[in-house]
């Protein structure tokens, strides 16, 4: 009997995955307690889904980085990311801007900044270059103390 229930839980995981999201507009992420129950948010299966997420080390996934020039000819950066874990993730990022010769532009904006994103949610970082000579960027992240 015990074996059967264990097999059932494992099968459920394999079939539906952990924290499987409901079919909806991908631009809208609904957190636990707001959306209808899924295997990842149901009161019975939720602990297992959270444990699975923690064991597999689900965290931030950077999905897209785009740049454009604004009306003042300043390079604007937008970095999109998604928090795969169930917990709010806090981290720091630092953006350095690079000129056409590949040199890093010395700027007081090149500092570590804090950001956070709720579990299973989208996040976005926007930044502006310090002057019009910037043509590209480099971004680093680190765990927030």
């Amino acid at each position: 009997m015990k074996k059967l229930s264990t097999m059932l839980i494992v099968t459920m995981f394999l079939l539906f995955g952990c924290g499987k999201e409901q079919k909806q507009d991908s631009r809208v992420k609904i957190q636990e307690g707001v959306a209808s129950d899924t295997l990842g948010s149901n009161i019975i299966t939720k602990p297992l889904a959270h444990i699975y997420s923690a064991i597999t080390g689900e965290r931030i996934e950077f999905t897209n980085a785009a740049t454009r020039r604004n009306s003042a000819d300043i390079l604007e950066l937008q970095v999109e990311f998604y928090n795969r874990s169930y917990n709010t993730e806090r981290f720091q990022y630092r953006i350095e801007w690079v000129d056409a010769n590949g040199f890093t532009i010395n700027s007081k904006t090149n500092v570590w900044l804090n950001t956070s994103v709720a579990g299973k949610s989208n996040g976005v970082i926007t930044a502006f270059a310090p002057n019009a000579s910037a043509v590209d960027f480099k971004m680093n992240t680190r765990d927030q103390e």
Binding site: I74, V111, W112, L113
Partner: peptide, 30 residues
């Protein structure tokens, strides 16, 4: 790469953060 914990008073990291965000807001506004 200062990894020390936060302090209750304003320290240089807070000024760096505030200045960085203000500068970017102003330059980004066009």
């Amino acid at each position: 790469n200062d990894s020390a914990g936060a302090v209750m008073s304003l320290d240089y990291r807070d000024f760096d953060q505030a200045a960085s965000q203000m500068i970017q807001s102003l330059l980004g506004s066009g």
